[in-house]
Design a protein around this nucleic acid. Structure first.
Lengths: 187, 187, 187, 187
DNA sequence: AATGAATGAGGCTTCATTCAT
DNA sequence: GATGAATGAAGCCTCATTCAT
């Protein structure tokens, strides 16, 4: 009995994740979700308070995990040991376990409280880059912002296309190397 | 009369362009446009069949121009002689003259028939790169796709931030160099 | 089993009384009640046919008691002997034993079959006053109705603020005296 | 043309006033209003932003007028010339011109921003009474509150039953005298 | 041409009530 | 008896689009 409820709760989450992933929060209707789950719309509200609560059900835990892990990652950055490998590995882990959630929270969340998440990530990354660059060589802020955004977008795109783990590893490594090279010869 | 009609027609287009640029097609309401133009919503339908027709009014011509120019550009690429053949220059021209339209058609067209335009651009660019690379060195298709998309996204981002021409030139050049470097050491 | 059932039946009643008292019939949801009781909403329907039945469960008995007592009170009025015949005392007893029910049935029953109860009380009171007044001095019916209503509303307000018995006694006496004085100089 | 729009705008207002007066804000549905006006529900939103805006359309102006007039009335109170007559006259004017609005704003506005209006009136009245009473004779605050509320409720009730002006005058005078007498012999 | 007015479909949400196990 | 699950009607609101003058 209890199981059934959890089953549906789960099915809602999985379905919603899939729909949010495909169409984003705004374009996904409660009807979309309910139909796919095989229940009436009003039934959704037995399990979640409202549409945004469903969204949160999908991403909240991931958000906490991600931000924690990200901070940890940044803290360890100072030591500069196997730096490249680190960020690659960090992102790989994230995408392998939570590909869809990662894409949703960064790219499909317009209209939710997570709207600003991607920007924050970009800002952090940008500051991080700035901190590691000789002041005299610094380019226009906007260019740096664009490059940071470019990198994040690349990661999101990779996540969107994720199929298997070894491809992913290769792909992220390539992207990271690509950006490292791109930057090295720039500044 | 004809003049008047054209004047309003034009004002609708300019206003719509501005709104689509700010909020995208889906999030822009007919009311938004009419209010800004200073006419009644119903009046829009005297000039355009429906909301999508307004959108087309904004971008159709640009679309034709752009695709033509793009093909021309690609044809001339081989000769590697004229400035026209330089992708930086090509993109600069586009953005200088049609910054908003370029952003709209690539990034603000969800819900219109142009939805797939960006993808097509990316594919073309990707094939173009492929054609210029030694088959033996070729990476996974998907990686190339992602890098192509990354480049296009970078251009879109630059376009979004466009203010003056010299900044733009510098910015695009940087991005192109960045990607060239990124790729050189990769393949 | 029977015991258990009665226990829950009772808990529902007590909870419902408290909620109806706070928010009225319309604004109290079945969920409000069930949550507070600690059972499922559907469970309510094992004990009561529907929401109004719960309401009746809360007030029916009181209603019978009250109307009976009121009639008795009115009958004994003529004799003007016993304390029972004193309206202050009558109301005090009611409020001390059934403060919430009294408020609910007079002021929180919109949407139930008791909606008209307060009106009926007012009418009775009005007729009662009328019967004791010299026909020649009689004011407009409506004025008398309004004064009667005013008195009842005062009582309800006192009931709502009821905390301890001596305060209540003082308060009702004041109100009664107040109205007596008000009327004396009027007719 | 302009006329028509205003006609409907007005019809909405009049209808809404009537419905709010009968059933209060919460219990009046947009459908109620639309049906009575003879338009579709969605049409209401051509004229008013939402249900509360309709309510405000009914009451806002009256509210400003009333609070102004009330303040003026209180300021002139000090002079204590024909005091009784004054408040009677003040209330009469209000009720004659805006009977329904007065009832709505005091008694039918649950769920709107005017919810607290009646309370405020009562508080003002109560403080006003307190200011005029010998401190040593002061009763319990609650009793004074109840009497103030009683008076306001009486006025509201009179307003609800308002039919013609001379009756109204008589009625308010009676109520005022009634309360004056009530109080005189109390304190 | 212009526009005031209307429309209907669809979106989110709440709630009393019923049903099957 | 208990309860997880479902249901449908109703409420508020938005929006693209159409109609009549």
């Amino acid at each position: 009995m209890q199981v059934l409820k959890d089953e549906i709760r789960n099915k809602i989450l999985i379905t919603a994740e899939s729909m949010f992933y495909q169409k984003g929060f705004k374009e996904t209707t409660t009807r979309n979700i309910a139909d796919e789950v095989g229940i009436r719309v009003s039934n959704l509200y037995l399990y979640y308070e409202n549409k945004e609560a469903i969204f949160c059900g999908v991403v909240d835990e991931f958000y906490r995990y991600f931000t924690n892990a990200f901070e940890t990652f940044l803290d360890h950055q100072d030591k500069k040991t196997r730096k490249d490998a680190d960020i690659s590995y960090f992102l790989q882990k994230i995408i392998v376990t939570d590909q869809k959630k990662f894409v949703i929270i960064t790219d499909k969340c317009q209209g939710t409280k997570y709207e600003g998440f991607k920007q924050k990530m970009i800002s952090i990354l940008m500051n991080h880059i700035k901190a590691q660059i000789d002041k005299n060589l610094r380019k226009d802020e906007l260019i740096m912002y664009i490059l940071a955004k470019n990198f994040i977008d690349g990661i999101i795109e990779i996540a969107k296309n994720y199929k298997d783990e070894s491809w992913l590893e290769n792909c992220i490594n390539t992207l990271v190397k690509y950006h490292m090279n791109g930057m090295k010869h720039l500044m």
